[in-house]
Write a protein that binds this DNA or RNA. Structure first.
Lengths: 231, 231
DNA sequence: CGAACAATTGATCCTCATCAAACCTTGTGG
DNA sequence: CCACAAGGTTTGATGAGGATCAATTGTTCG
C-alpha cells in the first residue's frame, strides 16, 4: 500500500518541505523491501538512489580490504541514508547499508534530490544540518577510538544507542536488541572483549545480557564509566 | 593590505559565487593574524565566525577530557574552516583550530553565511560538496583506526598529506614539513612509534627524515604498505 | 530434538604505549 | 662565531591491554 506523502515530513531533512515537494518525491520513488541480512547497496556501487527507511532497521558499515567491518551508524524508521551520493554527481556509495531485520524503504532518485536542492534552499539547509550533526558525531567517535580505552568506548557506544533508540520495558528499564558483534563493530573491538566487559558490568548490576539483548539497569553508572578520568 | 575579493573564488565553496557575493563576504569580514601555536578558536566557543586561511598553515584538532589530542585535518591557504557553526544556529565549534606557523585568515560572520545560503543555492551546494568529501575522509580514517595496524595507518596519513600539500624539491622528491608529533596525532599513535616506523622505512630507502621534515623517496612503496593484505 | 548461531571463558601472544635517557638540530644571545 | 637552551628525535627496556585461538556453554527456532 502506498505511503501518505505527508508522512515524509517526519524525515528530518524534509521537515520544512512543502506538501507539494513531498508528493514529488513520492512520485520519483519506488518502495523496496529488503530481507534481514540483505543489502540496500554496497560500498562502491553508483549512488543512483537515496533511501528513507519506512520499517525495520539497518546499519551503515564500511569494510576494509581484508573484510573486517566497522559500523558507522544504525538507521531507524524515517531516517534518510545513502544521500551523500546526491551531492557529488557520478558518485558511489562510501559505505554499505545492510538490513538488520526485514525492512522496507523508499528509494528516491539521487538526481531528483539534486534537482530539488537547486531551487529549495530549506531542503539544502536541512540536509546540511544533518551532515553537520553527522560530522560531529563521527569526529567524536574518531577521537574516542584514538584516545580512549575499550571499556569507555563500549560504554559510550551503549549510551549513543540508548539515546537513539532505547525501548522502555515495563519496569522502566531500557532494552537494546543488539548482537555483541554489532556492539563490537560500533566500538572498534572484538566480541570477546565486549563479552568480558559486559560480564563484568553484569556482576555489578549495571546491565543484564541475553541473546541479542542488552538491558541497561543503571544508565547513570554507564555515564560515569564513559567519563571517568582516563587514568 | 586588503585582499582582492575575486581571489576568494579560489575557496572551493566560493567557486560558483558571483563577484558581488564575494564583495559582500569581504564586507562582512575582518582579517585576523595569528601567531604560531596560537588558536583561532577553541572547541566549545560560540561559532560566531568562520574562516578562510589566507597565509600560513593551521590544524583542526579535538581534545579529550584528559588533554590528549587528535588531529582532524590540516588547513592550507584558501581553505575554509570553522564553517559547521554556520549551519546550526547558536552552535559552538566542535574542534579547536591552531596555527602551525604564523598565519592570517579572513574571519567572516557565520550569521552572514547562513543568510547567504538561504538565497544562493550554488553556495549551499558547494558547501555540501565540501562536507560530503570531509565525511568520506573521516569515515575512512575511522575505519582505518578501528581495523588497521599502525604502520599502515602512518603510511596512509603520509599519503594523505602528500596528496593535499606536498612540495616538490629540486630532485623531484617530495618534502613534507611536519613534526612527528603531528604525524602521530594524525594516525592515532605516539611519537615513539612514529619514530621507529620512520627509522625502519629509512633503512630501506623509502623516506629520509630530519627535524620537522620528511622526504618521501618512494611514494609507490608507501602505497604498497598501505594496501598490504592485513595478514 | 537438533542445527545454527550467539555468548562465555581460559590461555596465550603480540602489538604498541609508556618511561627514561641520550642524542641531534636549530636558533639565540653573548 | 661559539655555547647554550629548547625542543624535536631516537632507542632500549618494560609491561599492559586487548586480540586471537580454542573449546564450551547457552539460546532460539524450525
Amino acid at each position: 500500500m502506498p505511503i501518505d506523502s505527508l508522512q515524509l515530513r517526519q524525515v528530518s531533512v524534509f521537515q520544512n518541505a512543502t506538501d507539494e515537494d513531498l508528493r514529488l518525491f513520492i512520485q520519483h520513488s519506488v518502495e523496496r523491501s529488503i530481507e534481514e541480512e540483505e543489502f540496500f547497496f554496497f560500498q562502491g556501487d553508483p549512488a543512483v538512489y537515496f533511501y528513507v527507511l519506512l520499517s525495520g532497521r539497518a546499519k551503515l558499515m564500511q569494510m576494509n580490504p581484508t573484510g573486517q567491518q566497522v559500523n558507522l551508524r544504525t538507521i531507524n524508521e524515517w531516517q534518510m541514508f545513502g544521500a551523500l551520493g546526491a551531492v557529488r554527481d557520478n558518485a558511489t556509495y562510501p559505505a554499505s547499508a545492510q538490513a538488520l531485520e526485514h525492512s522496507t524503504a523508499l528509494a528516491i532518485k539521487s538526481d531528483y534530490l539534486r534537482e530539488m536542492l537547486q531551487t529549495r534552499p530549506y531542503l539544502s539547509f536541512d540536509l546540511m544540518k544533518l551532515m553537520t550533526s553527522y560530522i560531529q558525531e563521527i569526529q567524536e567517535r574518531y577521537r574516542e577510538l584514538a584516545t580512549e580505552k575499550v571499556e569507555r568506548r563500549i560504554a559510550h557506544a551503549l549510551l549513543r544507542l540508548l539515546s537513539q533508540m532505547g525501548t522502555k520495558t515495563v519496569e522502566g528499564n531500557i532494552v537494546l536488541t543488539f548482537t555483541q558483534q554489532d556492539l563490537a563493530e560500533m566500538s572498534g573491538t572484538t566480541i570477546y572483549t565486549v563479552s568480558r566487559v559486559l560480564s563484568e558490568w553484569e556482576k555489578h548490576g549495571l546491565v543484564e545480557t541475553g541473546r541479542e539483548r542488552i538491558l541497561i539497569r543503571k544508565p547513570h553508572e554507564l555515564v560515569k564509566i564513559s567519563e571517568e578520568s582516563g587514568q
